[in-house]
Simulated scan of single mutants.
Amino acid sequence: MISFSDAQLNAWLIGFIWPLTRILGLLMVTPVFGHRAVPARVKIGLGIFITLIVSPTLPPMPGVGLGSWHGLFILVQQFLIGLAIGFIMRVVFAAVEAAGEIVGLQMGLGFASFFDPQSAGQTLVLSRFFNMLAVLVFLAVNAHLLLLGVLVDSFQSLPISPQPLSTAGFHNVAAFGTTVFAVGLQLALPLIAILLMTNLALGILTRSAPQLNIFAIGFPITLGVGLIVLDITLPYFAPQFEQLIQNGIKASAMVIQTLRPQ
């Protein structure tokens, strides 16, 4: 008859539950994996599959009971680490969507919006288009595999332990949020400049010919110029998205280093 002691069962459980919690924290918020269209069963199944592969290579676990207060504290820590890694890449996609919002409003497409299940709100059509383009670039450069690689390496650089995490890592995660506004404006700047010159030309035309109905001709001209410039500049967006995604992966690795206990 095969029998197991409480210590053996606890060792097997903590060697599986704690890594799984960190992995599920990442899969819950990271782009593509964390989309609401992906069923929860798929996310949990993928997390279990990755954990079964990674768990034999992990450093020794701390000798803490899974149901103790220290065990629950470690569980929460692992979840926060996974969230921090995935949130960095979520900020990258938020910057791309912000660029689409800015461009859409400048082109006069503020009315062209629909319900986005991911954000549970109204999203401009150009913002959604930029997001889809960023997802294609994300998959084309295998950034989803690189992000999983960063997560697996985090178990070596930031092993599971009962020591509290450094607050500097969470500060870096919050500071990276400024990328949403800075990068979003940089991506939209060429279109903003062209549309600004178009609006200035329309203003001069209105002053020189007051009988023209600026509201009747201004909207189609602005929209047409915006679509033409978007078509011309679209090939240059993909390299920018790729660079932004690579910066996000580097930032995720840096956050892991700064989360290490002092």
Rank of each mutant, 00 (worst) to 15 (best):
V91K: 05
N142T: 11
G110R: 04
F215T: 06
I245V: 14
L105Y: 09
R128G: 15
S157V: 11
A216C: 07
I14P: 00
G63W: 01
N172H: 11
R207C: 04
G104N: 01
G177I: 00
D231E: 11
Q77S: 07
L200K: 02
Q240R: 13
I14Y: 05
A37V: 10
M132A: 15
F237H: 12
A11Q: 11
V180E: 00
V42C: 06
V91R: 02
Q118S: 09
I53Y: 14
F176E: 04
P210E: 05
V32M: 14
I88C: 08
L24I: 13
G110W: 02
G149N: 15
N172I: 05
G71A: 00
R36C: 04
L244T: 09
F73T: 03
I228E: 13
A112L: 10
P190V: 01
F181M: 14
L158Q: 05
F111H: 07
P60A: 15
W69Q: 09
I160D: 02
S252A: 15
S55M: 15
V125Q: 08
P220W: 04
L212Q: 01
F237C: 09
F49G: 14
V137P: 06
F181C: 03
A201F: 00
A99C: 00
I85A: 03
L259N: 05
F115E: 14
F176C: 03
I256C: 09
L230G: 09
Y236R: 10
S119Q: 07
L200C: 03
G121W: 00
F241K: 04
A209P: 00
A40S: 14
L158R: 13
R207W: 09
I2P: 15
A7M: 00
M132K: 12
V229P: 05
F138V: 03
I81H: 09
V183P: 05
P39T: 12
Q118V: 10
A140R: 15
L147P: 08
N131F: 14
S127P: 01
E97V: 11
L52I: 15
G248Q: 03
R207F: 08
A84H: 04
S154G: 12
Q262P: 14
L72N: 04
M1L: 14
L83W: 11
A201E: 00
V229F: 13
G121T: 09
G203N: 06
P39I: 11
L105P: 02
A112H: 10
A182E: 14
F49T: 13
Y236E: 07
Y236I: 06
I14N: 08
L58A: 07
S119D: 02
V173K: 01
I245R: 11
P62S: 03
A175N: 11
I50Y: 12
L202T: 07
M107C: 10
N142S: 13
I204F: 08
A120L: 15
T57E: 09
G177Q: 01
V76L: 12
V103N: 05
Q186V: 06
T21R: 12
V32F: 12
